[in-house]
Amino acid sequence: MKGHVWRPLFVVIGLVAAILVFRMFYVPADFGVHDQGYTFGFHRLGNEQEWKQFPEKYKGTEYCNECHDDKVESISKSGHGIIPCEDCHGAAFNHPEDPEKLTVDRSRALCLRCHSELYMPSSQRNDLPGINPKTHNEGMECSECHNPHNPSLEEM
């Protein structure tokens, strides 16, 4: 065969070889078909570990209980006892080191998430005491009258 046929063929073979060499270095060793098979498990195995190391922010009421056990015990008996501390007090992150103090959300908007009156007959929302935010002391913070740790209206 003539040289003009072979030459481009060599170029192509060279290119393919170059791509294969590049791939060898670029694609990590743990990349391949794993547990879930070719269709759903074709991935870099190390990424699973990376996701497992993602930092946690919310630590849960049990974590609060390690130091604030008196508060957790008394509040858990109130009507708001089902609400996790961090829902209002904010995510713990690495409290008490960082941040030293948590920013408490005392806003009216937070209370209204549950206590703005909506007619939801197929939902538990209907069982929660609700107010009309337009007519119920508009502009005031709820905590000026209500105690969020003891929401009982008789003990106000």
Partner: peptide
């Protein structure tokens, strides 16, 4: 009737999203 429906990823057993990934960047764990 009135109600709320929370939504999130269904983590399907046969995820259509994983099947279409051309580079193997999304996957299903064990």
């Amino acid at each position: 009737q009135a109600f709320f429906v929370p939504k999130l990823c269904n983590h399907c057993t046969l995820p259509a999203c994983v099947q279409v990934c051309p580079v193997g960047a999304t996957y299903s764990t064990k």
